[in-house]
Design a protein around this nucleic acid. Structure first.
Lengths: 232, 232
DNA sequence: GTCCAGCCGAGAGCGGTGCTCTCGAAACGT
DNA sequence: ACGTTTCGAGAGCACCGCTCTCGGCTGGAC
């Protein structure tokens, strides 16, 4: 009597295959995922899918969680591949990894950072994976501060309500991080996904043709704002 | 034989009413607009709608154009209401107007700046209205430069491909605007809609509670990056 | 004042969707 | 070997966008 019986194993494989087919549909057909469509592709009838996912939204949630994890992993490995003391290099590596992943998986990215699906509210399972990219970015700041490569901007520039919010946030993400530094880090985070959104959703279409260089330059501007130094 | 015959007039009124009902549906039911639903609300059968809009996408396009215009008008009037020489005040007024409009019309905002509808590609009619907000922001920079309230950052910071792209863009938006200044303006533009996206799409949910103050602070950071001075 | 072309709404219908329920068969654990 | 559990198939419901046809109304030219 194995902990995972045969039934449980084939069931897990079935769930994985459904997710794989759904991901493929997402990549080709765009955001509107059809349960009946993936059922057809698997040679099944649509009602059979409901043995594995109680609703279309649950399938979407599973895909969303996996997508968050894939994006988070991409950003983390990119950061890990850079010289620990080259804060600016780590920043650019992380930003580029996020953009590259988004360009390679536009439909999944839209699921994560596009408009929320009308009736859908993200369950709590997603908030962990969703925090991986910003956590990685903040880690760069924390490391830089610990290694004295970075100095925090004056805290006096923060209105008190903002300082209080950021203090609570720092307690979760990176305890001890000065609020003013976190504020600029969040500006960088916002900018990063704003840039990706604009590029992916066509807002740069008749305006910017050298996308790679534009992206690097814009993220460099934010690195300046944060105060990230180059390699020592 | 009036230029607008009776027939044409009632037809135009009908189109307006359909758009109004559709906008109401958008506000209550969220992004998935149902043609049959608006037809029901108007006491009509669904096929009758097709006398006025050839497809659901065409209705969406009409709503998108009106939404762009409403947002653009809100930003423009906000800017116009500020002291011409207070560049920072104008910047904040424009940013707040965009955010306020978005918070008041979340579904319409999502239509404009959320993930694009799968099969839908924005027709050319939308690019004019879509340019109004960024044009207004750039106008602040142009005015500041003309009044010598603002100095452009050194152009040497720009990689050549970026400089070339931005030069072309400046020719359209604000001829003569230094590329490095436009680059920072676009960073502010990206940041603005990244901020609104994050707030509206729930990314700030368990993180930032004082939304107004946070927004003002983040846009102030970008005003710093651009180099906007306060009132003289 | 007549009359007809043009417009309009209703209705039926097509293929698609998410989802529910039932039924029979297969496979598992005992 | 048997009873239970699980599974896929199928029919069906209500909804969707969209097409086509038909009959009535009416604006405007005569």
């Amino acid at each position: 009597m194995p902990a995972s019986s045969i039934r449980a194993r084939v069931r897990a494989e079935m769930i994985d295959e459904i997710k794989a087919v759904a991901r493929r549909h997402l990549a080709t057909d765009g955001a509107n995922l059809s349960l009946r469509g993936v059922a057809r592709d698997m040679g099944m009838v649509s009602s059979a899918i409901y043995r594995y996912f109680p609703s279309r939204d649950e399938l979407l949630t599973a895909l969303i969680i996996e997508a968050y994890d894939a994006l988070g992993a991409a950003v983390e490995t990119a950061d890990a591949g850079a010289d620990r003391r080259d804060l600016r290099g780590r920043w650019h590596a992380a930003c580029r990894a996020a953009r590259d992943w988004a360009l390679r998986h536009p439909a999944e990215y839209a699921l994560l950072y596009g408009s929320p699906v009308p009736g859908y509210t993200a369950p709590d399972d997603t908030i962990g994976p969703a925090q991986r990219p910003p956590t990685t970015l903040v880690a760069i700041l924390r490391d830089g501060l610990a290694a004295s490569l970075l100095t925090a901007p004056p805290g006096g520039e923060l209105p008190e309500p903002v300082r209080a919010d950021l203090a609570e946030l720092a307690d979760v993400l990176a305890p001890g991080l000065p609020e003013a530094l976190l504020a600029r880090g969040m500006a960088g985070w916002t900018q990063l996904f704003g840039l990706i959104n604009f590029e992916l959703f066509g807002r740069l279409n008749r305006a910017v043709s050298h996308r790679d260089e534009y992206f690097d330059h814009q993220t460099a501007l934010m690195a300046d704002l944060i105060g990230l130094p180059g390699p020592t």
